[in-house]
Amino acid sequence: MHRQVSRRTIFAFIGPAVIGLSLVGIAPLLYAVWTSLHFYNLTKLKRVEFIGLENYWKVLTDEVFWQAMGRTFFLLGTALPLQIALGLIIALVLHQPGLTLLKTLGRLSLVLPMATTYAVVGLLGQVMFNQKFGVVNQLLGGANINWIGDPNNAFFMIIFWDVWQWTPFVALVLLAGLTMVPVEIEEAARLETKSNWVLLRFVQLPFLVPGLVAVLILRTADTLKLFDMVFTLTRGGPGSSTEFISLMIQRVGFRGFDQGLASAQAVILLIITIVLAQLYIRVFYKEV
């Protein structure tokens, strides 16, 4: 179906996007690599000097960096299973016939958390989880839990908001998968078995797999990117209990002013991301 057209025509169509994205997406990366090879501190700009791979060596042997990385994947490992389990329940309920009006309302309300500004989610967290006048402690029967000031509670709170914001996304992805199951197959299977579990495992699951893999990889990328919500809610604290990888790099670069070291951390994060992205696209988008 495709047609051979002149190189000039192709360039005229695609060139502007390529040049534009190179200027904002690649040029800065090259500059980050350059910075990462230098001692580059915002408070000591007279002393920018080439130090080779020293920053990289520092990062690779830095316990704090790997702790932040581990914390990031720990968040993914706790929040994602919850999102998938709850998302599946919601999707199965919405997929049942009947109660059309209530289900339409349900589906529309699922859209709200996903679209909410991440920074606002963090601010809402501050207000609702406040120890003294927060509504969460009130709803827990006048509990006096210090959510924001205690390391474990703060981490739990981050999980809570991540689950609140992204379970709807998982639910809608899985619901899309469920609607792909041909009606005849589902009805034939219902004649064979009364067990919803058997139906889910052997009839519906194959249709859910593409969505589940998409969720897995997108949530991985988004957890590596996670910044706005945590920054407004806890700023990575107390201590470093909620300091995920993007927050840590931001702290080193802009609050510690060590742009060289932060750039080396960023380059390493980028490499990890690209490996994951390769995997993502290999698995899914066989197109073009």
Binding site: V24, G25, P28, L29, Y31, A32, T35, A221, L224, K225, F227, I245, S246, I249, Q250, G253, F254, Q259, A262, S263, A266, V267, L269, L270, T273, L276, A277, Y280
Partner: peptide
């Protein structure tokens, strides 16, 4: 998929 902090550092400079 790239984390914004990766671009924010060089873009700031």
């Amino acid at each position: 998929m790239v984390s914004p902090i990766v671009l924010a550092l060089p873009f700031f400079l």
